[in-house]
Structures are given as structure tokens and as C-alpha cells.
């Protein structure tokens, strides 16, 4: 099977500090892939390289056969959406104002609110459960609602590849599950390729087809959660002693710290 998105010998350093070291990996198409690892292992950096927000020092990111940095940024935006980790919106912005920005790569200065835009935006808002909040100021929302508004913006971008940088930040457990379930559903429905950075290894296991574990700027493990997660693997990734049991609902591995 061919992969639409892959990295070749991807390296990135700031001055003398190496953040990513020679990473070559495919991103499985039509699957959910989670990037896990300890703090400062380069997870977010890797994701931001995939979204062409960072320019690698060496190597490249390939999208549909061409280096992503050589492509028109608007064309890339139609294929890849990214939910940034902590984004701030200008004063006075309302939910609808934000979500409709997601339509940017499909719009032009003259055609800013087509029927298709309107439908996709309202369906994106509905999907994240913010219907009825369209005219609320972002500043007046709770952290979780604001996060969902940003996710709706990424959905409105209507791309096949969705990158999420810690989408569950600020969310309570119910909303964490809801958002991840939503991502899963969307992926299955529209055959999206999803890559996300997640802190919670158990949520990553439960909602992903693939795990990429980063350690010391390199890929330590890559594969299906049930193949990858083991007591020794967790010890290697996080330096944490734990037991791995089978989740009573799904049968997937579940990590319990000792």
C-alpha cells in the first residue's frame, strides 16, 4: 500500500540542540496514528514538521510524492489541517467567526461565504456539539468549549489528513472521550488520515490504529497498540514501572503505573 504522507531522514535542530534525528517513517493512510513519548521527546515538533510549520534541517516530508515545502501552501492546506496546541484568537471573535476561517483554503477574497462554506461550517459546529453557540464570544466560553471551537475550525478545513496537537488539553474526561470518539468516527466515515499527539497512553491505545513512540529524538517503536505496548516498552518510553493488563471492555492493553 502506498502512503500519502511520509518522512525521509527528517532531522531538525535549533543551533546545537537536536530535536529530531533522522526519522524515516510512513504515516499510514486512512488510519489513526498517535505519537506518544515523554515530555520534550520531540512529539509536537514532529507533528509541526508534518504540517510544514517547521522547516527540517535535513531530510524532508513527502506529501503525495513531492516535498511538502515545495508545494503551494494553499494546496497543502486543502490536504492537511492542524489543530495547534495553544492558539489565541483576536478580541471580539465569535465561534462562527473562528470556525469559518477553516474554509480559507477553499475561499477567495471575492467568494467568502458560499453555500458549501455555510453547510460545512454549520456541520462542523454541530459535530463538536457547539450548535447554538455560534454567536458567543470565544472569550466567554469555557476552556473545553473553546478547544472544541478550534477543532471545529480544523474540521471545516475539510482535508483528508488531520493533525491534532494534544486535542484533549483543557477537557474533562467525558469531553476527552467525546472528542477522541468524534475523531475516530470522522476517520471511519470519511476515511481520514489522523495523526495526533497524546499524553495519555491509555487513550492513545484505545483510539489509535498505530502508535509511534519517540524517545531521544528518534522513533523507538512503531506499530499496532496491541503489538507495541508492553511493560518493557513503557519502561523504555517513559522510564516508568507499570503493569499492563487487558482492558475489560476492549481487550486492548491497559497501562497501570506501579
Amino acid at each position: 500500500m502506498t502512503h500519502r504522507l511520509l518522512t525521509e531522514n527528517l532531522s531538525l535542530s535549533y543551533g546545537k540542540t537536536t530535536v529530531l534525528d533522522d526519522i524515516s517513517t510512513p504515516v499510514p493512510s486512512g488510519k489513526v496514528t498517535s505519537i506518544v513519548g515523554a515530555n520534550a521527546c520531540g512529539k509536537s515538533t514532529f507533528l509541526r514538521c508534518l504540517a510544514r510549520l517547521l522547516k527540517p534541517t535535513a531530510g524532508q516530508v513527502i506529501l503525495d510524492g513531492t516535498s511538502i515545502h515545495k508545494q503551494n501552501t494553499r494546496d497543502v492546506a486543502r490536504k492537511i489541517a492542524l489543530l495547534p496546541q495553544s492558539a489565541a484568537a483576536p478580541d471580539g471573535m465569535r465561534v462562527l467567526d473562528l470556525v469559518k476561517q477553516g474554509r480559507t483554503p477553499h475561499q477567495s477574497p471575492l467568494n467568502q461565504w458560499s453555500l458549501a462554506d455555510q453547510e460545512i461550517v454549520s456541520s462542523a459546529i454541530a459535530k463538536v456539539g457547539l450548535s447554538g453557540f455560534e454567536e458567543r464570544l470565544l472569550g466567554d466560553l469555557s476552556g473545553g468549549q473553546r478547544q472544541r471551537a478550534w477543532i471545529a475550525m480544523s474540521l471545516a478545513q475539510d482535508s483528508d489528513i488531520l493533525l491534532l496537537d494534544e486535542p484533549t488539553t483543557y477537557l474533562d474526561l467525558t469531553h476527552q472521550i467525546e472528542i477522541l470518539q468524534l475523531v475516530r468516527d470522522l476517520q471511519e466515515h470519511r476515511n481520514l488520515t489522523v495523526v495526533m499527539v497524546l499524553h495519555d497512553i491509555n487513550l492513545a491505545t484505545r483510539f489509535s490504529d498505530n502508535l509511534i513512540a519517540l524517545k531521544d529524538q528518534r522513533i523507538l517503536l512503531h506499530g499496532r497498540p496491541e503489538d507495541v505496548i508492553s511493560e518493557s516498552a513503557i519502561a523504555a518510553i517513559y522510564g516508568l514501572q507499570c503493569s499492563v493488563i487487558a482492558d475489560p471492555h476492549t481487550g486492548l492493553p491497559h497501562v497501570i503505573p506501579r
Binding site: A51, A77, A81, P84, P90, Q101, T104, Q157
Partner: peptide, 15 residues
């Protein structure tokens, strides 16, 4: 779009 910050603008396909 630039008002949303450089990163978000890039993600949305604005050079």
C-alpha cells in the same frame, strides 16, 4: 487570517 497568528494562518494555507 494573519490576525489568528502565524501558525494558524500557515495551516489555513496563507503564505
Amino acid at each position: 487570517r494573519l490576525a489568528l497568528g502565524d501558525e494558524t494562518a500557515t495551516v489555513l494555507g496563507v503564505a
